[in-house]
Nucleic acid binder design. Sequence first.
DNA 1: GCAATCCATAACATTATGTTATGTAATGTG
DNA 2: CACATTACATAACATAATGTTATGGATTGC
Lengths: 298, 298
Amino acid sequence: MKFQLRQLEAFRATAETGSVTQAAKILGVSQPAVSRLLADFSTAVGFDLFVRKQGTLTPTSEARYMLAEVSRVFDSLNHLEDLRRDLKERTGGHMRIACLPGFATSHLPGVLAEFLVERPGVTVTLEPDRPERILEWVMGEQYDCGITDGFSGHPAIERVDIPIRTVCILPEGHALGRKEVITPEDLADEKIVHSRRNSTFFVQLESCFSQRGVPFNSWIEVRQFTAACTFVSQGHGASIVSALDAAQFEGKGLVARPFEPDLSHDLSILRPITGTRPLLVLDFIEAFVESLQPFIHQ
Amino acid sequence: MKFQLRQLEAFRATAETGSVTQAAKILGVSQPAVSRLLADFSTAVGFDLFVRKQGTLTPTSEARYMLAEVSRVFDSLNHLEDLRRDLKERTGGHMRIACLPGFATSHLPGVLAEFLVERPGVTVTLEPDRPERILEWVMGEQYDCGITDGFSGHPAIERVDIPIRTVCILPEGHALGRKEVITPEDLADEKIVHSRRNSTFFVQLESCFSQRGVPFNSWIEVRQFTAACTFVSQGHGASIVSALDAAQFEGKGLVARPFEPDLSHDLSILRPITGTRPLLVLDFIEAFVESLQPFIHQ
DNA sequence: GCAATCCATAACATTATGTTATGTAATGTG
DNA sequence: CACATTACATAACATAATGTTATGGATTGC
């Protein structure tokens, strides 16, 4: 048989109150409406649910068995409503984020924690990995979004690019620390810790030096700006890194100064073109982008 | 929000097939009917459930979360339908039967077993006790029905009386075993095992003897006919018991012969006047009465 | 004995869900 | 590349479920 929710509501209210009149009040309809719903329901189930005794209705024992099961139906509907509300208010669900390794231990956790505190029903998978893997996962929709850098584009990916300011970092107490702005000329005699040679950022940086006829003293190539920061904070070399990473090391063995010319390091937030647009994930991306405002390159 | 089952059905069918047209076929309605139900549902929940891609609908991630919970709703409705069917076909439910102690170990278990084999969803509480307790429990609706004897009536109880034939039982090989019918005169020199002196049946039995001027040689008073049967089957005395109990001992150390005058022993099936009339219990009572037909006193 | 209360039913109204018809967009095929 | 086919959305109308008020019968309370 095909149940009608309204009939189940009328049945439950009547069985629990022992009164059609009370049930009508609870359901916000007239008494004859409940009477009709009950009669229709009894016909549909194929047996009596109530007997009339001393003017009022008494549930049959069959009705009592049904009531327990009907209550479970409403329990499951209540769970559905809870989920609906969580989804509508974006306070529930799961999102999978792939990011560069440095992100999993620096700026991102703080942003995520703040985001999640306001959304008790939300859970997250945060997976650090190489840019190639991030791209692969996002394209295959194994992850809802990826946070990477140096992204050159892909037809299956939609992106949000965020140009992050870069700064020159020097060991604390370094003579150049007295200058307000560092130029390539200033670094002519310094050993440079820099990102991968084939990265977009590196090409731009080296170009600055060569355009000005200043030698670029390559010392150590690193994969992550955080590694460069670690070297410099231990008193070795100089580096041009994103202000985001530098901020994590502020007051920890290094100083940061604006670098001229003013380069930006492009972060990219990736989303698959295919697949859906989970509102929750869009909310998170917005929050993440907002958290980067202090580091935005003008 | 207030869910509509039909909308949930349309949603689930569409999410599972990926097609409004397929969902319409599954639900047995036209395609625009499903389209409308989905639109109404999406408006009601407050977020998009499907996106149109390459001409067909793709569930959003919110929809996928909802689908799991909607499936649970339908699971609970399926359980409700199973219960409804069991109750309608009286193949499910629970009944509580109070009976005289002898019944719990004799005729009744066989009848119950046969009744329950055909009704896998039915469970039973079978509680043996004294007639006074049986009456009390049934009146208080702690038990659905009681099987007792010598019941003199009560305003709060409705009853079905079943007169059971009685027979004279003698140890196997007894000289009187050669007779077709036993009379009080035949028992003038026999020790009699009999029921409680204050029971209706005993009064009737003793009256038979005294009316004929035959001495009644009282030997042992017992509470249950089964106890009397046990004594006689071990070669001691004679007794007049219900044919029901005697049948259990047939070929086990005793023989049974009709007793003249023809007395009956009244069993009573009790039901509370108040409370409901569980169809299952009424079915059982009918089956039980039917099982007693071979022992009915004409 | 009458008033109040509870429930069932009738007649009519409203809303949810159904239909057919039609339009738009995307895909497949010759 | 043009046309046929398929999928989905919307309009207009029809049907069924659920709502209303009015009313009657039965029971209870004063």
